[in-house]
Amino acid sequence: MALSPRYVLRETGQNLWRNVLSSAAAIITIGVSLWLFGGFFLFNYAVDNATARWEGGIEFVVWMQPDATAEQDANIRDSIDTSPAIKEWIYVDQSQTYEEFREIFADTPELIEVVSPDVLPPSYRVVPENPDADVVAELSDQFVGRPGVEEVVSADQTIRDIQRLADKVTRVFLVGSVILLTAATLLILTNIVSAIRSRGAEIEIMKVVGATNWFIRVPFMLEGLVQAVLGAMGAWVGLRVLDDTVIKGLSEPDSLQLMQGFRVDQGEFYSTSLLVLGIAIVVSGIGSAVAVTRYLDV
């Protein structure tokens, strides 16, 4: 009673080949929609990574010198702690900074090897009461050049602008990909329905000689699955290119200082790829389930 793999492959292959053009249309649509969908995730990861330091309302960071004395440190801490303009603050010590550093440079172990916690600067990450750019600038200026302070970096308007822009752009990606995914589902559905229609005679014979439902259905469902998986593979290539060119390009060391850390690490890339494959399988599952249950009654 087992489905012979030879039979299933032959039938699925014939179905796909009979409608190469519409199969290609479905594959391309799935590919592009999944690419946009994956791109949404990659950009979000990259923006998160780039602005990680600036989350939770942190508007500026006071980087201490690694060899600042305890007295210098206490001095700065006291000013921050007592300032009425500062809502809250976090102290990130050298080992925590090292952890951050390791995360950011996970892909370049050479770099991690030559760095040890004691050469990294500890920092105060400051959340002011008033996030207005001018107020923040004035506040952060008070720490510039004080003994033990290496530098003061603020998340000025530009970062916020980038976050907002990235938000908008990725939202367009998401909406576009959802619309295209719907189109892809419908394309898979119509492809399977037209395959079912063009094989009406075969299906009638199959039913009359006692082929099981699953035997009749599986080749059609597999057709949808193959289209979706091929689309997902196309999307992977597209996402690789997106990561290698656009995202890596934006974080090139000599481009905008602000875009440093705008990157996607391996784990994030692979989980996005898996997600894309999962969505492909779900989409083809919906398309073929509707097709075989609505148009292939027994």
């Binding site: 012979s4 005679a201 075969e202 014979i205 000689v209 035997f215």
Partner: peptide, 24 residues
Amino acid sequence: FKLLPKKTVAENVAFALEVIGKPR
């Protein structure tokens, strides 16, 4: 008759066995 036009005589008959999972 309802024969499948793109299959030969032998294939038409074989089809009835293949789709109920009979071994080759």
